[in-house]
Nucleic acid binder design. Structure first.
Lengths: 97, 97
DNA sequence: CTGTATCCCAGACGATACTG
DNA sequence: CAGTATCGTCTGGGATACAG
């Protein structure tokens, strides 16, 4: 489970499933994540080969993160987890009634 | 991610994907897990509605854990994560050469 | 803009011992 | 057999401040 270890990891991968995104864009996408955690997760994902990190030396500099091919394979998986989670939430709500 | 929160959770669900299993059977299946963590994870899974817990009042008593229908939906998901993880490991090994 | 450096907390985990 | 209790450790994460 080192692959999806962090609580935020699936969310981050999810946000990258479309176009590559920059650091601050990810921060806007996931408002409640702290810079520290975001950079920690991105580092970990880069190490495991799920995302790539490209520094663009402009002024100000920007950094783009994108999923690797294998990283893309995680997207439907995350989708599936989300589905089950949603169903469980619904079933729980139904049980309340 | 409270669904698959713990590091052992996917493994436990995986072991339950076949027949229902008793507490000590799970301990044998996953040798390095402590009783405390196993019981904690099982409790959490029961709470989220992924597994059911059935006490069989024999002597000595035994307890069977089984996946719910929704729990079963997690099995292919875990399989998929495993696949990606395996591919990543292979690619890493290939990069070493 | 893209991070790193602290500090501090809560939770997950491991080992051991003990109970119904 | 199936756990709970306790203690200690380690990591993830939040907040804030600071740096290239």
């Amino acid at each position: 489970m080192k692959l999806l270890g962090g609580a935020w990891t699936p969310n981050i991968v999810w946000r990258l499933s479309g176009d590559p995104r920059r650091f601050s864009e990810l921060r806007d996408d996931i408002p409640r994540i702290s810079a520290k955690v975001l950079s920690a997760r991105l580092r970990a994902l880069e190490e495991t080969g799920v995302v790539t990190r490209s520094v663009i030396s402009t002024s100000p500099p920007s950094v783009e993160y994108a999923l690797t091919e294998l990283g893309r394979e995680l997207v439907p998986v995350i989708q599936a987890i989300l589905n089950v989670g949603t169903k469980l939430a619904h079933r729980r709500a139904a049980a309340t009634r």
